[in-house]
Design a protein around this nucleic acid. Sequence first.
DNA 1: CATGCCGGTCACAAAAATGTCATAGTAATG
DNA 2: CATTACTATGACATTTTTGTGACCGGCATG
Lengths: 229, 229
Amino acid sequence: MAGKILIIEDEPAISEMLGFTLARAGYAYDTVANAEQAQAKILAEPPMLILLDWMLPGISGVDYARRLKKEKLTAQVPIIMLTARGEQEDKIKGLESGADDYVTKPFSPQELLARIKAVLRRTAPQAVDEVIEIDELRLDPAGHRVTARGETLEMGPTEFRLLHFFMTHSERVYSRGQLLDLVWGRSVYVEERTVDVHIRRLRRALERHGHDRLIQTVRGAGYRLSMEA
Amino acid sequence: MAGKILIIEDEPAISEMLGFTLARAGYAYDTVANAEQAQAKILAEPPMLILLDWMLPGISGVDYARRLKKEKLTAQVPIIMLTARGEQEDKIKGLESGADDYVTKPFSPQELLARIKAVLRRTAPQAVDEVIEIDELRLDPAGHRVTARGETLEMGPTEFRLLHFFMTHSERVYSRGQLLDLVWGRSVYVEERTVDVHIRRLRRALERHGHDRLIQTVRGAGYRLSMEA
DNA sequence: CATGCCGGTCACAAAAATGTCATAGTAATG
DNA sequence: CATTACTATGACATTTTTGTGACCGGCATG
């Protein structure tokens, strides 16, 4: 999984509970108690999702969400608001503010996790822990394992992420630049040619059962994972 | 085992009987006679499961369960309702209120224990006192003992908990941070690399019959217990 | 108050992963 | 064909991550 979930919640008990729930579900997370701390974390490493308390000390969650959506760095990051009131008014406000979803307290861990999955599925399919299988090639995100006909295929972390990305975005070409952004992560400066090398390594890892043919070069454009010859 | 079972029951005879049953089954527990006392205990240390009488002085068990499920601190704690009436209506009400299961009086200790196990199995697999066996390696939570081919393997408490966790969550990778959360317990400040050391100690303890191969390193991700090579 | 067991840290060794290059290949192009 | 424009690959030097042994301090035991 590429990133963490950032919990912005000032009530320690709640934030701890959220963290525990997320950890049990296999998500990595960070917790902060206010907007300033959140900014620091975000600058250090933009999270893949933000859980935002509706009421924060200093600034309201709604306002903060609006602010986050204006910032280029965080505009793409989905936000789930945690709101105490179950009133329609607040819900609408929350959504208008740019939150992608909201959960009203009280909520069960199941509900929270379901919302998170739903949101991630449409913003970052890589982040959803579901086994993906394409043409006999299985990738298990939770177990962090790739198998072909029951046999485990060994590969390095980057190759795993690359394959994971391709398997969640198949049949579509990505340029080296896009891959660097999406797999390596923005704010990384690496030679574009480096992608070639990792593609090579990935192919070698998939060779065992001929799955290297899935990784195709599109001359002048980039690479793609496709089942078509 | 992580926590205790909280019995909320105003009838001393029943409460005593419950305590006896739980103790014999190896569970730690606390008993309280009403909601106020329960709140106090819960704040002090959230239990891993609550046995809740359907009728309480002051507030009905159903209402109290609903309240517990609304509190974030206790939202994820499973609740088993103890109800005197065997009527369908009550059962449904109990479940709607947020109870995870119910037991109708009179009930046998066996039945109660079975329900507890079932509920814990789906909320906290580690809390179930069941012998787990993976690839000739047996872990007996009740006896706090690990054996391989009849031979007892010695290890420290932390290594035991770690192994227990892995055996109840196999085939899945956990990062050092997650392991600290889930095995050491939330709100513990320990160096992440400490996990490595305990992994090392656990592996050494499992070496005798080659079970150390079950504990696998997944570079850049964490550790996993898996039977696959 | 010795002793021994444990758990947490360190520092250093060992292993693996990464990013770059230089060179070899290959497909377009005219 | 000859050229040009890209892409494939093997080899390296480095940087990251892990593995491990040793050490220290807290605690319970005797």
